[in-house]
Design a protein around this nucleic acid. Structure first.
Length: 266
DNA sequence: AAGTTCGGCAACCGCACCAGG
DNA sequence: ACCTGGTGCGGTTGCCGAACT
């Protein structure tokens, strides 16, 4: 028993989208709205698979997309959310307005992951890799990387930062990385109720979890070039992460005090 | 200047989940 | 309870431009 293919591959285009195809897709969705992706290509006069149309719309054509470089705040948010959620790119994207899961996934794989590795941080577990301290120190030359490392270390639960109390050393537990903001005193370990947060009133639904409720939680959208962020950080001495504390209202992760922050004191 | 390598990103593929019949 | 279709998600691939030799 199998399932029918989502489209007739013999009559569908593949590869890069043309301007005309984009225009057709945008025009159709503007007129009829999203949904019914299977029948959309035919209705819109496109020789494309419905899944391809959906992907093109979500990742490239949506009007609310934010293009351009990721900001330092977004970097921090991604690192922290990845520490919490793992490779749940759609969930992470739900906390970054204007960013898509695909974009974040690519950014992680091409930028953040490599930088974390260079800093001796395991991108999967957010724990320090077993490398000589001198190698880590030698790699800490740039302020930008220093900032990323600091954020990553805040995101990780390591014996050095936690004193070992919060991080059982068994491999089973290590496979489920926890988040701890040592500086801020916030325990983000999702396996235990955060001491400074009320328990969640109900289990998180899928809709709540993936951000499809339409709420915009994290407002880290300032589009400053990265080098400006570095200068700002150097001049103030405080990281964007510290200035934009994480909002951890359980099912509304984002920047503390952001638009959708439900803490009440933000 | 030409060839090669590398990095970034758009797009594809296959599986999982969910809702409706 | 089971089956099927539609949709969403994460992993992977391949193209293209930049950097390097």
């Amino acid at each position: 028993m199998g399932r029918s293919p989502c489209c007739e591959k013999a009559h569908t285009n593949k590869g890069a989208w043309t301007r005309e195809e984009d225009q057709r897709l945008v025009a159709y969705i503007n007129a009829h709205g999203e949904g019914c992706w299977r029948s959309l290509p035919k209705a819109a006069g496109l020789q494309r698979c419905g899944k391809s149309c959906r992907l093109r719309w979500i990742n490239y054509l949506r009007p609310d997309l934010k293009r351009g470089n990721f900001t330092a705040e977004e970097d921090d948010l991604i690192i922290n959310l990845h520490g919490l959620l793992g490779n749940k790119w759609s969930l992470i994207a739900g906390r970054l307005p204007g960013r898509t899961d695909n974009e974040i996934k690519n950014y992680w794989n091409t930028h953040i992951r490599r930088k974390l590795l260079a800093r001796g941080i395991d991108p999967k577990t957010h724990r320090p890799l077993p490398v000589p301290a001198t190698a880590v120190a030698a790699a800490s030359s740039s302020h930008r990387q220093e900032h990323l490392l600091a954020a990553a270390r805040r995101s990780s639960c390591s014996p050095e930062t936690s004193g070992g109390a919060c991080c059982p050393s068994s491999d089973d537990e290590a496979s489920a990385p926890a988040l701890h903001d040592v500086d801020g005193g916030i325990d983000l370990n999702l396996s235990i109720s955060p001491p400074r947060q009320p328990p969640s009133p109900s289990p998180m639904t899928r809709q709540q979890a993936d951000g499809t409720s339409g709420e915009v939680v994290a407002d880290a959208s300032s589009e400053k070039p990265l080098h400006n962020k570095e200068e700002e950080q150097q001049s103030t001495g405080s990281s964007p992460y510290e200035r934009n504390k994480m909002c951890l209202c359980l099912n509304r992760l984002g920047l503390h005090g952001g638009e959708g922050c439900a803490c009440g004191d933000g």
